[in-house]
Design a protein around this nucleic acid. Structure first.
Lengths: 234, 234
DNA sequence: TGATGAGCTCTTGTATACCAGACGGAGCAC
DNA sequence: GTGCTCCGTCTGGTATACAAGAGCTCATCA
């Protein structure tokens, strides 16, 4: 029984991607807590792969700011840095606002119509599942940037959103927040359709600012609970 | 003599970084030409290291958009994509403009004064070495963003500048361009000092646009020459 | 009692062996 | 002549062996 299991590969096409996704999942669910120390061997044993794909995954996560390596010492989960999150929110606002600006110049509003189908609907047609709303919200903001027509800007926006995801995913748990999101998105799209870009930008900015503040509040308690949860498990 | 050489390590602290820097150097000097195919073994043999650090370096370069891997087939140097460069220039403008905006709000002009010492000088005090001017130019634009006070935005700006470097470094070869750079930078800083941010933004935008157009022209001929140069060598 | 250093153990960094898949060319069938 | 199949050889993907440094433990000595 010294032979390894046949093929424990997941949906990813290789073990490195698989390990990357699993590790990110553990980071997002606070199984790996900010500040924790760990080693490559530890991860490799837990995920039943060799150190090679683990290292590849960790380097990617390091590049994205989630973990850091201390040479010949070990790895650490980077502590949550709310100043950094604020800065990323500011960049989000900048990118999305400027995409609206270019939108009106390029008359590229086909994406916008698709977004309206999702967001400009009657209250009883609204999605209620938190995770589904969160996904649609991601698509809304990505869609605005894509409509701007700058693919590199979309890529950067996606990176920023990715880095915010660890705290943003804790939003959309209260019905009130979901309803507010629907109304604000619809209002923004409405102003765009009327060609009032300036007003749309103003609404967009305050919409994102509201999200930022809300997430601040939620995350602190959620992180605390996640910490308790993990401690209970041992 | 089957024992390897003792320590052929360069300035980097490990072979992976060393390999990364050497590869990027070869990319920037068009020793590795856009469109070229190559394998990990080939690089490893040429740089006298094992595949492990080579792979780590290549993954970093892939993430930065210089190369791409085709699984179980090989690696390719990504062709130069001028549309992409245009998009990156647009992002540069956005980031630097918005940094000026925040500058006036935060009254954070200590960086600006340092920049003025370099750029607001008499014509005979100007740096003439192309490489030195290029370095100062990088610092000027990075300095503007840093003065905005958003560290994450600085990081993104740095990434964008890095990706533009392969074509931007071919600029600053003509004295005329150097002089224009000095005058335009001085003008921008002058407007900032007078608190006329809007005008500074306008100048900054046209300054970057001019650089973009100039680089377009230069690069096509330089790349052609680099191609000839390499063919001559064989 | 306190300082110190040898050495053990753990870490990441690097090299290498092995695997499966992709591709191309030779050879055969038609 | 043309197309198909098989097989050898190359590739990157993965596992593993080895090297070297950081840090801790504990014994030793002043």
């Amino acid at each position: 029984m010294n032979k390894k299991a046949p093929i424990p590969l997941g949906i990813a096409s290789n073990r490195a991607d698989e390990t990357y996704l699993r590790l990110k999942d553990e980071l997002f669910n606070f199984y790996l807590l900010p500040g924790d120390y760990f080693s490559e061997n530890e991860i490799a044993a837990r995920m039943a792969v060799s150190r090679t794909p683990v290292r590849e995954a960790l380097f990617r996560l390091q590049r994205e700011g989630y973990v850091r390596v201390m040479p010949r010492v070990g790895w650490q989960v980077r502590p949550l840095d709310f100043d950094k999150f604020d800065q990323l929110y500011e960049i989000r606002i900048l990118l999305e606002e400027s995409s609206l600006q270019r939108l009106v110049r390029k008359e590229n509003i086909s994406n916008i119509k698709m977004l309206m189908a999702t967001w400009c609907c009657l209250p009883d047609e609204r999605e209620s599942d938190a995770k589904a709303v969160w996904l649609q919200d991601e698509q809304f903001h990505a869609g605005l940037v894509e409509a701007g027509g700058n693919a590199e800007m979309s890529r950067i926006h996606q990176d920023v959103m990715e880095r915010l995801r660890i705290i943003r995913r804790l939003d959309f748990t209260k019905a009130q927040r979901v309803n507010a999101t629907y109304e604000e998105h619809a209002a923004i799209l409405g102003q765009i359709q009327r060609g009032r870009i300036g007003e749309a930008q103003r609404l967009l900015r305050s919409h994102i600012e509201a999200s930022r503040l809300e997430v601040h509040k939620i995350t602190l308690s959620m992180l605390y609970e996640a910490r308790l949860e993990k401690n209970r498990a041992y």
